[in-house]
């Protein structure tokens, strides 16, 4: 019995070391370009997000082809000519909560800072971005809004459409409920 207890203890311990993870596969990621000639919005509702509430680490990823545009031709051009989805199928964030200490078991809204790496179009940049974490009836969800400059990720916008696409793209992430 004693050895069994030891084994169980060690097994449990291995789980605690790995940390408790909250997951969603239906995070919504939107992006907005506001240029003089055109406003462009696209949404992807199949973002995945993995939050480790013991280590305060967070990872999120999204398939570029999953972004839906109002103009279907624009969606094709986005994949084909701008983000080159055939070469770089996904965008990813890996990081940790660098400031702010959300109480995962206490209801409330917690403003935090995330620090990590953002990979888009095969280019990885270190980013710091503000996010807010909400615990409602014990269920955690997170939200972030930030801007990126497409030059940082080597996404080229031809001069001809410079007035149609803003180089600063606002990105909006809602994880929804994490389980």
């Amino acid at each position: 019995m004693k050895q069994l207890a030891t084994i169980v203890c060690i097994c449990l311990n291995s789980f605690w070391v790995n940390g408790q993870k909250l997951i969603t596969r239906t995070a919504s990621i939107g992006f907005y370009s506001d240029a003089p000639l055109e406003k462009i919005t696209a949404t992807n509702r199949q973002g995945v997000c993995l939050l480790d509430i013991d280590n305060n680490t967070i990872e999120a990823a999204v398939l570029m082809r999953g972004f839906e545009f109002r103009k279907t031709l624009m969606q094709e051009h986005f994949n084909e000519n701008y983000v080159e989805s055939h070469r770089y199928p996904k965008a990813q964030f890996k990081g940790k909560i660098s400031s702010g200490s959300p109480q995962w078991t206490t209801d409330g809204n917690y403003d935090v800072q995330l620090e990590g790496t953002l990979t888009i179009h095969g280019e990885t940049r270190t980013v710091r971005l503000p996010a807010s974490i909400r615990v409602n009836k014990g269920i955690v969800s997170a939200q972030a809004e930030f801007s990126i400059n497409v030059d940082d990720y080597k996404i080229r916008i031809p001069a001809l459409v410079a007035d149609n696409i803003n180089k600063n793209i606002r990105i909006d992430i809602h994880t929804g409920d994490l389980h």
Partner: peptide, 23 residues
Amino acid sequence: TNTILMAQDQISPIDELIDSIPQ
């Protein structure tokens, strides 16, 4: 086993998650 589990974690469950999206 613990390290193996953690190593598997490092192959990243996020990749597994995203690969599981039907395409």
